[in-house]
Computed example of a mutant assay.
Amino acid sequence: MSNEQETYIAPPWIKYPTYPEKSNFWRTGTGAEYLVKFNENVENKEKYYEIFPKAPSFGEEIIADDSLSENTKKLLNDPAKPLFINLWSSTGKPKYDIDFNVDKNYIFMYDQLIKDESTHIHIGTDKYSSAKEIISIVESDFRNKSDKVWEELKYTVYINALYYKIVTDINFTKELIKTGDMGIVFKSDNLEWGVEEENGKFIGKNLFGLAMMEVRDALRDVYENYDNIDWDLSGNPYSKERCMCSDVHKI
Rank of each mutant, 00 (worst) to 15 (best):
A211H: 00
A218M: 05
Y8T: 06
S234N: 01
S57A: 15
F186V: 09
N3R: 12
N101F: 01
P79S: 00
S246A: 10
K37A: 06
I184A: 07
D147S: 11
T91F: 04
L83G: 03
F58R: 13
I229S: 01
T30S: 02
Y158I: 15
N71W: 10
F142T: 02
K201N: 13
D141T: 15
T173N: 02
D66S: 13
D66H: 04
Y48E: 05
K174S: 07
C245D: 15
L113P: 01
L113M: 12
G31D: 03
V222I: 13
P11F: 00
A32T: 10
W26E: 12
L75E: 04
K81N: 09
K174C: 06
T179N: 07
V36C: 05
I229D: 01
V195Q: 07
Y238A: 09
E196P: 05
K37T: 06
K45D: 05
V138Q: 10
E6W: 11
I170S: 05
K22C: 14
H122A: 11
T18N: 12
Y48F: 12
F84N: 09
E21W: 13
N105E: 13
Y163W: 08
N44G: 08
L233C: 04
P79I: 01
K54W: 02
N41D: 01
I51L: 15
R143Y: 14
I135A: 03
G59Q: 15
P20K: 07
